[in-house]
Amino acid sequence: MQITLAQLKRGQHGIIADVSSIHIPLKLLEMGCLPGNLVELVQVAPFSDPMYLNINGTHLAIRKETALHIIIDLPDV
């Protein structure tokens, strides 16, 4: 099942399927936010924004508005 990263719940993880490169800064890609990489939502601030992620071992925080442009595959339950 595909959802946007913004819909991920705390503790859940998925595989990045697609990033819309117009909306995503190069810096984020360079930090590992690339298709095929595993992403886990570690923690959220109040109102789920910003989101604290673990992408393939790199820990970083992004805003929800950016997370909306990242599509992920959820593992089948």
């Binding site: 984020l28 910003p50 820990h59 970083l60 925080a61 992004i62 805003r63 508005e65 950016t66």
Partner: peptide
């Protein structure tokens, strides 16, 4: 134009 990426170091 907002981008916000911050590394959370160990």
């Amino acid at each position: 134009k907002t981008f916000f990426v911050v590394e959370m170091p160990n």
